[in-house]
């Protein structure tokens, strides 16, 4: 099992409630697991706790109750032992690249940090090629790039160490539709070529169906349904059904 989430609970302090100590339960016992090599989508309405799950898996926050294992180990332990093996692409690409560094340094950060001294330049060029960016971009700064280009840079950095687990946290939600399609194609290519486990978090069911083998529906802090994307219409859960049938299709 690549990733295992067991009965995870997480709540946050509610703001603006004066002296009352109310807590907002975001996750109410979320459990799921992802096998190595799988590409799984996680959907749910905004505020349903998708991002919380991603932060917990990434080890940026701790669960109140329950546990998360990557390859049988606790997240923080696993990260220490497997440097660069879990990667993430965030929704907000503007703060994903340090504005002080050139694109080549942004992409090469992990390569350099984890001890590679030679051949970084060549590797960065190879990565740029892989994500479909011109080599000339290497000497520019993040603020000189468009949103789509910057997200490609983030993807290049994310796959630089050939990670085993890749989390895409609403990675296409802030992009224009035509750019979204290009980035989705890139994800598709990466998935085909690099054989990594991918968790694709999104609110766009059509994009999830395009990329993933399996989709999980998150509602009221719980996974209410897991289903293969090829059998989408077999969903049993009421909420998942509503989400599916509310999608407005585009027909030509």
């Amino acid at each position: 099992m690549m990733l295992e989430v067991r009965e995870v609970y997480r709540s946050y302090k509610k703001t603006g409630n004066g002296f009352r100590r109310e807590r907002l339960n975001v996750l109410n016992g979320v459990s799921f697991s992802i096998r190595a090599g799988e590409c799984v989508g996680l959907v749910g309405e905004s505020g349903s706790g998708k991002s919380t799950i991603s932060r917990l898996i990434l080890g940026l926050e701790k669960a109140d109750k329950g546990s998360i294992f990557i390859e049988g180990k606790r997240v923080s332990e696993w990260i220490k032992e497997n440097k660069g093996q879990m990667s993430v692409v965030f929704q907000d690409y503007t703060s994903s690249a340090n504005p002080r560094y050139k694109i080549s340094d942004v992409i090469g950060e992990l390569l350099k940090a984890f001890g590679e001294n030679e051949g970084i330049h060549g590797k960065v060029e190879h990565l740029l090629e892989k994500v479909g960016l011109p080599l000339s971009i290497a000497n520019r700064y993040p603020h000189e790039l468009s949103g789509g280009q910057l997200q490609r840079v983030c993807i290049a950095r994310a796959i630089s160490m050939h990670p085993r687990l890749l989390i895409l946290d609403e990675a296409i939600s802030s992009l224009d539709v035509s750019i979204q399609a290009q980035i989705m194609d890139l994800f598709y290519k990466i998935k085909k070529e690099m054989n990594m486990t991918i968790l694709f978090i999104a609110h766009d069911l059509q994009a999830v169906a395009h990329l993933c083998d399996k989709v999980m529906f998150l509602h009221n802090g719980q996974i209410v349904e897991q289903i293969a994307t090829s059998n989408l219409t077999d969903v049993q859960n009421e909420y998942a059904r509503r989400l599916l049938y509310s999608v407005i299709p585009f027909n030509v």
Binding site: V177, Q206, A207, L232, P249, F250
Partner: peptide
Amino acid sequence: VQLTKSFTEAM
């Protein structure tokens, strides 16, 4: 059309 193909087909 490309982006929604899989979804439309599944549905």
